[in-house]
Every structure is written in C-alpha cells, then in structure tokens.
Design a protein around this nucleic acid. Structure first.
Lengths: 343, 343
DNA sequence: ATCAATAAAGTTAGCGATTAAGTTACTGTT
DNA sequence: AACAGTAACTTAATCGCTAACTTTATTGAT
C-alpha cells in the first residue's frame, strides 16, 4: 500500500481553499491569517505532507543546494572539511550535494556538469591533482554560479579561493628542523604541478636557502600524495644507500609510507631516520613515535569557504574576489624534536 | 555577463523543430532519425545546453538519485563505504545525495525527510547510536521508497539489511585470544543498545562461555565507540588496579584510545597489555605495534547494499526482504599473537 | 491502386510548486 | 458618502521538461 505522496492541492481541496493559500501558509507568508496558517499546517502535518523539492525549485528558480567536489573522502583532511561544511550548510538551510572526483579530471568535469544540471546555488571545489583544463570553470562562471576553490586551487585569475599557507607552513617545519641541527634534509614532494605541492616545495627551498643549505636533487622526490609513494621513495633512497637524516613530507600519508618502510627495514624513527610532515590527522598521535606535523585547521577552511560562498550567493551586484589564507601551526609530537645524527 | 542557461526550446527554435523532438533526440529516443539526432546534439553542445534536473525529474517523476544517511564520514569505515557506493552509483547513472546525521537521531530524521522531499529513488542508511523512534522508517516505506539498512540496523521486521557478522567476528577474535592462552580478557563494548554493540558483546560472551571462562563484570565496559571512551575506560581500570591481560574492543578508535592511555602510563603493548579490535582501518598497520583486528570488507557492504537497492528500485512487484551477512576475517598483525602473562 | 504498417516528427497536457497580478470585504479618513 | 488602504484570498501564468497521443509521409504487401 504505497501512499502517493500528498500535494499542496490535496490539502487545499480538503480545506476548500486555493493551492496558493496552502503554499503561502506553509511558507509563513504574511498574506495568510494566523488562524488559517494554524489550520493548514495542522492538516498538512496530519496528512504527512512533504514538499516536492523539484517542483519547488523549478518554480522558484532556487535550489537551496550547494555542490561540493573533492578528490576523495576516505581521507581525514577532506572528511573533516566536508563534515564542517555540512554543518554550516545545515544551519543555513542549505542542502549539500557531495561529489567525489577520485583524482580524475574527467570525472570531475562530469560532476560539475551534474551540479550545474541540478542548478546548485553554489559550488565549493578542491580540484584533482591532474586538472589542467580549466574551461569548465569558465562555464560555471558564465552561468553565474558562484564557485569557491579550496585548498587545491587552479592558477587562474578572478576566482575566490581559500587555501592554507602552504609555503609558510613548509618553511616553518624545515626551519625548525634546521634549527635543531639537521642539514641532510630530504623532501618527498608529491605532485609539484598542483599548488599545494609546489608551494610546499618552495617553502622547503626557502628554508634551505635561508640557512645556506644545499638542496640535494636526489633528496627531492616527486610522485604522489599517498602511502605508496612514501614507501617506494624511501625504499629507493635506502637501496641507493643515500638516506638523509630527516624527511619532510608533503602529506601525512606519505609519512605513513615511510613509517612502514622503516619498520620493514628495521630502522628506528626518529633515531635512524627522522620525519615531519605537512598536514594533521587524528591518528598521528597514535603512531609510534607520534608524528610531528604542520597543522591545517580544517574547520577554518570550511568556515571561510562557506562564508565566501554564501556572500556570493546572496548578493549578485558587486563582483569582487577574495583569497583567504589560512595560517598553519607547527605541532611537535614525537618526531623532529631532537637532532639525531646518523651513526 | 551571466548567460541565462540554454533550454530545450532555445535549441528547438534555432533548428525550427519542436521542443519534444529536441528532448527525444538528446535522450536518444528511437523516434528521432540518426541525422536529426546528430544535428541536434551538435547544436546542443555548441550552445552549451545543460538539462535542468528539476524540470526533468519533476516531469518524469524519477530522480535518478540515491540518498545516503550515515552517522559520520571523517571515519575510515564510513568513508570507504561511501566511496564504494559512490562508484557503483556513478556507473549506474545515479547521483548520490549524502547526508550525515552526526549520531543525532533528530538530525537523522530531518535528513530522511529532506531525502523524501527530493524524491530520491532509494535510501541507504546506517542509523545513529541513539535512534529509537523508528516511525520515520514506516513513513519511508509507506511512500514506496526502497530503503536498505546497512551495518547499524534497527530491530524491526520486513526490512532489507546488509550487516557484518558481528557476533561471529567477535567470537573469532576472542577464541583466538583464548587459544593463545589468555584468560583475563576484558571487552570495551561501546553502546550495547545498538545491534553492532550488542552482537559483538554476545560474540565475546559466546567465546568465553565455550571455553568456560568467567565474564568479569568489571571488565565489560560500556560507553561509546570513540577514542575518548577507550582512553577513559582503560584509565579507570588502571586506577582501580584491575587491568586484564587483553582487551577486545568494539571498534578500532576505542583501541586507539587504549594505545594512547598505555603510552601515557608507560605500559607496553602487547607485553603489559594486549589488544585486539573489531574493525579494520588502513592506519592500523602503521601503529606500533600494528594492531590486529577483525576485518569488515567495506567494499562488499557497499556492493551488496547497492545491489539490493537497485533491484528494489527496478522491480516494484514482489515484496521480499533480504538480509545479507558479510563475513569477517581475523587479521593478525602485531598484537594478540602471543600470550603475554602480566608480571 | 489500396490499405496497413512503420518512421519521424508534432501536439497536448500535465508534473507540483511559485510569483505576480487580480479580487473581495472591511476599515478608517475626511 | 466616497474613496483609498489594507488584510486575506484567488486566479492565471509559468518553470523546463517529458509521457502519451496524434499527425503526416513513406513503404511494402496484396
């Protein structure tokens, strides 16, 4: 026994009023008297009325929906950001359409297309490692749909962005290491084509230069942002018998890869090889030794992104663009706290 | 310069055909000749046509959208499941509306309401720890919207469910420990009001009974599924000077809490206190020692849930309900591999 | 040559809401 | 008494698209 869902007109018919009266009453429109409102909303509740999103959005030309595009979600950083965005959206009466590009530019493109199809009121996106064709963003812009780029941002002018102080954060980590006494410092840099990779690399370089330390090419490894890359890069250096004293990694999964490799090779962290990474995650403090890092306040990133987006959605007149940099902090735990000379 | 988005009628006008012809052509309807289709889709692409989801769905009374409700997402288990569901949905041309209840039954209720509003074609849900009022699920059912309960499932008849063999898995872990020689075994059980908590507890009890070991009330702690609970419960036992030899935890974050507490107290795992948990997560192998566990194949859970849901969506006639149990495995790493007598 | 069958469109009528533009009936002002 | 003003509704017109018919050629079988 499937109840066809109740429509405004069903309520209207039963109460012998017009559909519009019911619509207005339920939206608390001043045209309707308090008594009528009361009666209508009572009956609506009794009949189990659920407004039809599609119809409402189609006729009002607003979707009250925000689209999100992230490269992945089974990952602390994005998971937390999404959760925060979610909460803020909820408070502001917006729905979230979450899409995951899986680091695939083609999928990303399709998702954005879908979001446009759904007529979302705005989009928050963190682009994939490989996104190079930015034309889709032009399309979004030309449709008048506000879009905020977060964390991973394309190199194009006139966009709203919220990003972490990657360069400064990386600098902070490496400078700290140098001050401890480290000189043989490697950097597992991930993808340096994308802003976060490039800037973290530059921050690393800044620090090395400032203290007149040479940047050893063999110790700047590129590849990916995941565990596998960290594991393999470390193994490679080990095989070449060319291990540094400390490795600064572009993300924490990369550091995890090092932990795994070191454990296999029976090397002790931080004594045989020391590590510090960019990016915080709850598990780091459970590692042995607890992994030190540069924190990225995910809640701030989410807050600022939503703030900008909601502003854009609500006022269409002035077209200014904001770039907000989120500060980082050095979080010292069990690594990179002493200089450990290799024996 | 905001381009109002292109409509079917804009394309129709330009080509001097009817709107319906364009609609059919773009949906590859056999009514339209190949040549016409080609012309229309070329022009549509050129004009940058994006179908209006709302209008399409309203008119066709199908949304091609699946709603998901989970308690949280910044968590490996749910994160992976969502990612898998996402992929399957994508392949089958469905969109996902993801909602997060944050373990709050009230929020959960609202989300389900919203999903109904959006006229999703089906729902996959993992309920909150505290969901007790199941009336909303009746509403969903009476609306004819297929719903699949996954992992955390309510105790009501005639529903489709996909769940892990919690009792058997827990039994497996505890039996393994007992066979190693452990007798003083505690269980940090989380919330035993919800199926997963209760069944894992029962599995623990089964094993203890089978080997004639007493279940010590002080060693069965209840509270939550998170790190904090693990930490606090462990500290409490420690203060009472009542530590067991091994603790079987209901989730891996609870085990993480124990790792943290042990590290603070300078107790060595697995020698001073041994641990094994229910639930796998990528990070476990990076812990020191790597944490042994009962695995829950998240991809299987996702696959089966989607399989059932899609089936339900596609055939409305027969009303049968499926309950699928996903098997678990014992994954031994660095804990619970030897019997460590407390000194 | 006639008629049924098919191909390839075109027409009509909503889907379930909302916005904008009327109606009434009543109130109060001068 | 006449008229403007307002409160509380109603009517009409879409929103952009699709399902279900209907129409018009064109083809082939008899």
């Amino acid at each position: 026994m499937v109840n066809k869902s109740v429509r405004l007109s069903d309520i209207a018919e039963r109460l012998n009023v017009s559909t519009v009266t019911v619509s207005k009453a339920l939206r608390n429109h001043p045209d309707i008297s308090p008594q009528t409102k009361k009666i209508i909303s009572d009956v609506a509740a009794e009949m189990g009325y659920t407004p039809n999103f599609m119809a409402r959005n189609l006729s009002s030309r607003k979707s009250n929906t925000i689209g999100i595009v992230v490269p992945k979600i089974a990952h602390f950083f994005f998971g937390s950001i999404i959760e925060s965005i979610y909460n803020i959206a909820f408070k502001n009466n917006y729905e979230i359409i979450l899409t995951v590009s899986q680091e695939d530019a083609e999928i990303e493109r399709k998702h954005i297309q879908t979001l446009l199809s759904m007529r979302v009121d705005g989009i928050i996106i963190s682009i994939t490692q490989e996104t190079k064709d930015y034309s889709i963003f032009e399309t979004v812009k030309s449709r008048g749909v506000p879009i905020v780029f977060m964390d991973r941002i394309p190199q194009i002018p006139n966009i709203d962005t919220v990003f972490v102080d990657d360069r400064g954060g990386a600098f902070k980590a490496v400078e700290h290491a140098i001050k401890l006494g480290y000189k043989k410092i490697a950097h597992f840099a991930g993808y340096t084509e994308i802003n976060i990779g490039q800037l973290r690399y530059l921050g690393f370089e800044d620090a090395m230069k400032k203290y007149n330390l040479p940047v050893n090419k063999d110790w700047v490894c590129r590849g990916g942002f995941g565990e596998k890359y960290g594991y393999e890069s470390f193994m490679k250096l080990y095989r070449e018998n060319n291990l540094p004293d400390l490795i600064f990694t572009v993300t924490y999964p990369v550091a995890l890869g090092i932990y795994m490799a070191a454990s296999e090779l029976n090397l002790k962290i931080p004594n045989d090889i020391d590590v510090i990474c960019f990016g915080d995650a709850k598990v780091q403090k459970f590692l042995s030794p607890p992994l030190s890092c540069i924190t990225q306040p995910t809640n701030l990133i989410a807050e600022k992104s939503m703030e900008i987006l909601l502003e854009k959605i609500n006022k269409t007149e002035e077209i200014t663009y904001k770039s907000i940099e989120i500060p980082t902090e050095l979080m010292l735990r069990g690594t990179c706290i002493n200089f450990n000379k290799k024996k």
